[in-house]
Amino acid sequence: MSSFLRPARSDEDPLGPPSPAGGNPDHHERPADRYRPVSCHFAITPPVSVVIPAMNEAGNLPYVFKTLPGWIHEVVLVDGNSTDDTVRVARELRPDITVIPQRGKGKGDALITGFAACTGEIIVMVDADGSADGTEIASYVSALVAGADFAKGSRFANGGGTDDMTGIRKLGNRVLTALVNAKFGARYTDLCYGYNAFWKRCLDEIRLDCAGFEVETLMNIRVVKAGLRVQEIPSHEYHRIHGDSNLRAVRDGLRVLKVILRERASRRSRPRPAVIAMETGRGEAR
């Protein structure tokens, strides 16, 4: 069994580490050796950081934080110069939260800022609009501790879904996904989705340098070019709870296309990785 996980005991506190081996109260485990019960079936040692980029999302944060698992190591909120009570609400909901003020602009800049502040070995990206279900984080983390380098959320894998995408956005996503698959040898079912998780060490491989919304596409392309092992995770996207989305189908689609063409022109890749669909239930590459 992987050193990262083991079956959880029924007598373990789901919000805290289990008793030290042998029951010796004088034994002190290192933080890296501390098991975090994820479910009644298994516990993990790697600390998990959740990065949430937010700008004027005070009304949505209570819903976002409510679904986050109690076993995560830390939440890093990157505040994009909010003019509402985003920071105050975040600190009231989670006093131990790390709040980082964003110096630049754009979602990519916010994520890169948040990633740099993470102290966990696993990083999970979660939007602040309430569209993501934090309970799904267990599936992402399970994929990583089982051997994946990058766990990629998909609304179009078997078991996923979306309440939020318009017809034009679905069409654009389908076309762009097909283009990336054809040009980079990937097997993605969903390209433009921001709910992902990965080992922090992967940042050295993909070296993000994108400030805007298209950062998600850049990540998906560069993990393929780096030869990292990818597993798709079926995910359901819900409607934004409060406020208006900043997404613009045509504008953002063109920005994503520009990234694809730029990465294709500078292509220097290793052998392509396996992309595994979680719904196969077997763990072998397709």
Score class of each variant (00 low, 15 high):
A249F: 03
K107E: 11
H242T: 09
I233Q: 03
L247F: 13
V256K: 03
C210I: 07
T162V: 03
R6Q: 14
G22P: 11
V223G: 04
I72H: 04
E263F: 01
A54H: 08
K200D: 05
P62R: 10
A43E: 05
L254P: 01
V124K: 02
G281P: 04
H242K: 14
V48I: 11
G134W: 02
N158M: 15
T189L: 14
G104C: 12
H27W: 15
P7W: 02
F115G: 02
P234S: 08
K225L: 04
Y188P: 04
A285V: 12
N181E: 07
F150T: 03
R30H: 14
V51S: 03
P53T: 08
G130N: 02
E205W: 10
E232I: 00
N24R: 14
G70W: 07
G283N: 06
A211F: 13
P271R: 09
L208K: 01
D109W: 07
D13F: 11
A90S: 05
C40R: 15
N158F: 13
E237W: 00
R255G: 00
G22N: 14
L203M: 13
V76F: 01
V87W: 05
V141I: 12
A146R: 11
N246V: 15
S49W: 01
N158C: 15
K225S: 01
H236S: 06
G227D: 09
C192T: 12
Y195F: 14
P14S: 07
E57D: 12
L77E: 04
T162S: 10
R264Q: 13
L171Q: 12
M1Y: 11
G59Q: 13
A277H: 14
V87T: 12
F198G: 03
P273C: 13
P69L: 01
V75N: 00
S82T: 06
P7E: 06
R9H: 11
T113N: 03
N220S: 12
K105D: 13
R34W: 09
Y35K: 05
K105Y: 11
T166S: 15
G153F: 03
F115A: 05
T166M: 03
P25G: 10
D11L: 09
E121A: 14
K183C: 12
P37F: 04
N181S: 10
L208M: 10
D149F: 09
A143P: 01
V141P: 04
I260G: 00
A143T: 04
V223I: 14
R240Y: 09
L254D: 02
G16Y: 13
I123Y: 02
A146P: 04
F115Y: 13
